[in-house]
Design a protein around this nucleic acid. Structure first.
Lengths: 332, 332
DNA sequence: AAGGAAAATGGCAGCGCTGCCATTATTGGC
DNA sequence: GCCAATAATGGCAGCGCTGCCATTTTCCTT
């Protein structure tokens, strides 16, 4: 059922038509090596006339140098990953690299299978989210010899390149901020933390910080499934039903926090006097709500951007911490 | 600066190690043709032992059959396109196809350049947004012989496959709904319509329908740049400053509409009694706001899903209308 | 005008695999 | 136990390009 390409024009045909050798056409098209202006014109004319489109498959095989970059990402629903792709694709396109991707649904087993499938394309680099990979994935990536970029998480040991920030630090600073503001009865609303290990790291650092200041987490509500606005709303509703005297709630991210915010609006719960809300990600929408959301802005696009630049430049192994920014907002 | 792969294991080496011929290894790995169980085991053992990863570049070149699907999308910020990718990638992964993408920023010239770059990978299919392409793009795609899928727009003539719904119908139904609800002083807040031609189609059909019912568009505010919540807020603010007596506003999409909604919340404008708000896309967040957003829900994920299925099945040229759903909500 | 460096060009092996064909091993029927 | 099917298997050309090397042409110098 695979598609068979029809009569495509080849380099040899262009060479024939232009009355030059194959290597000359190749040199002209890649603008590499020397050739006369006259020859260039004749080649380009033939290319134009025949509608020749170089075959990168053949080119890549012949040169054993790849301009593919593979992304193995957990999700496309969580805006984080499209943002990373966006940052990366701008750089990659400029440098005539091609991005290929696949989505793991936060499943490490699937990650391994998809990483294997990607390696079959012999990419210049594989970009993955975070540090949590199966042993098999790590072994395979190591053996492949291609660059490995771990994104959006610096709490662990990098295999090769790593770009992002510390989720633990984000959790810590979020807690410190709420404590500084005087909140003591703090709850948490989150989504499935086993799958989203980065959210898990934020949460545990958050709790540790609270504990260290004698204000241990008062209650938590963890919803199955992915993060969403509706789950945030529902989560806060349940949490407050159980523990009504909270004075602040930390959400696993802005989507969830917005759900909480809407819940408060709908129930007439005064923010932040009656209940404070704190998110994570710094989505644009959080800055357009009647009260700007208190949150942490993460460098998602920049992460993709820098990661792609490192790959394009074939930079030596390194860890790049892009940090994050706490946005005070008006909800906490 | 391109990356050179190091000593990779080849089919020939596996064949050697397993003590069989190359073609046998190839047959075993692709589970195609006949071979004995004993041979299979020996081959698989050798594959395992050597850590062999097949080279799809070479395989694709040899078979001249591609399992790549190329996406040329306008944006990754607009949730629409990640949603389409999500729907498609699930199907593609199941069928061992690989997705490659690039982002045009709504620039037709860039679309042409990127489409050319994609064709160089000899994909089984190229997926593009809508029908508006440069002459060069169309010519090139046609000549490539690969499948062409136009997404999210059915108002025009399909080149090959098309999956989505009619934006004009969406605009029409939105207008009809507002009129039916009794609104007569209707305004519009939108983003750059020259670039986002689908939003432009909705808008013109919307206006035509209003005009046909003697309630022509009262005023409009078009903001430069991409759609965003903040632009929606700002747009409504400006629109109302100029034309305060509007009773309803149609937004180019839900992001913009949410901005408008937040503006009303912040200014104490009663929704929908004082001002009605209508969006487009049917984002989840619009259902979690205190008043659910009145909007049209579009089948974004399904569009990607169906498009991928058609490609995988190598279906004959056709147009698939997935329709859309009007969500009454509570803001209009 | 001759010599030599530099520029321009062509030829061809080979990247790692698949598809085709030829060959050899098995199997079953009577 | 013999012959025809059928199952297994190997050999090798060739997918379209690039990289290397050899060759030819051009352009200076002196």
């Amino acid at each position: 059922m695979e598609f068979k390409h029809q009569a495509t024009v080849t380099l040899a045909e262009v060479a024939e038509a232009a009355g030059v050798g194959e290597s000359t056409v190749s040199r002209v098209l890649r603008n590499h090596g020397s050739f006369s202006g006259k020859t260039r014109d004749r080649v380009m004319a033939a290319v134009e006339r025949l509608g020749y489109v170089p075959n990168r498959i053949a080119g890549t095989l012949a040169s054993t140098a790849s301009r593919l970059v593979a992304f193995v990402i957990p999700s496309l629903s969580n805006i984080v990953f499209p943002d990373v792709l966006r940052g990366a694709s701008a750089v990659l396109e400029e440098n005539r690299y091609q991005a290929v991707f696949s989505v793991t649904d936060y499943d490490p087993g699937k990650e391994e299978a998809l990483a294997a499938a990607m390696l079959a394309w012999r990419p210049a680099a594989v970009m993955l989210a975070g540090y949590e990979h199966t042993e098999g994935t790590v072994k395979m990536l190591r053996a492949s010899g291609c660059r490995i970029v771990e994104l959006l998480d610096l709490d662990g040991d990098a295999l090769d390149l790593a770009v992002g920030f510390s989720n633990r630090a984000a959790g810590r600073e979020s807690a410190a901020f709420l404590l500084k503001r005087g909140y003591r009865r703090i709850g948490y609303v989150g989504h499935d933390l086993n799958r989203d290990t980065r959210a898990g790291k934020r949460f545990s650092a958050f709790c540790e910080t609270l504990g260290a200041h004698d204000a241990p987490l008062a209650d938590r509500e963890i919803l199955a499934g992915a993060s969403s606005v509706e789950n945030g709303r529902l989560g806060l509703e349940r949490l407050l039903a159980r523990t009504p005297d909270l004075d602040a709630v930390y959400f696993s991210n802005d989507d969830m926090a917005l759900g909480g915010y809407f819940h408060c609006l709908a129930r007439g719960i005064a923010i932040p006097s009656q209940l404070a809300i704190f998110g994570y990600n710094g989505l644009d929408i959080g800055r357009a709500t009647p009260q700007p959301l208190s949150t942490i802005r993460t460098p998602r696009v920049a992460t993709g951007h820098v990661a792609a630049q490192l790959v394009v430049a074939n930079a030596p192994p390194q860890v790049v911490d892009l940090g994050f920014e706490l946005i005070e907002g008006a909800t906490a």
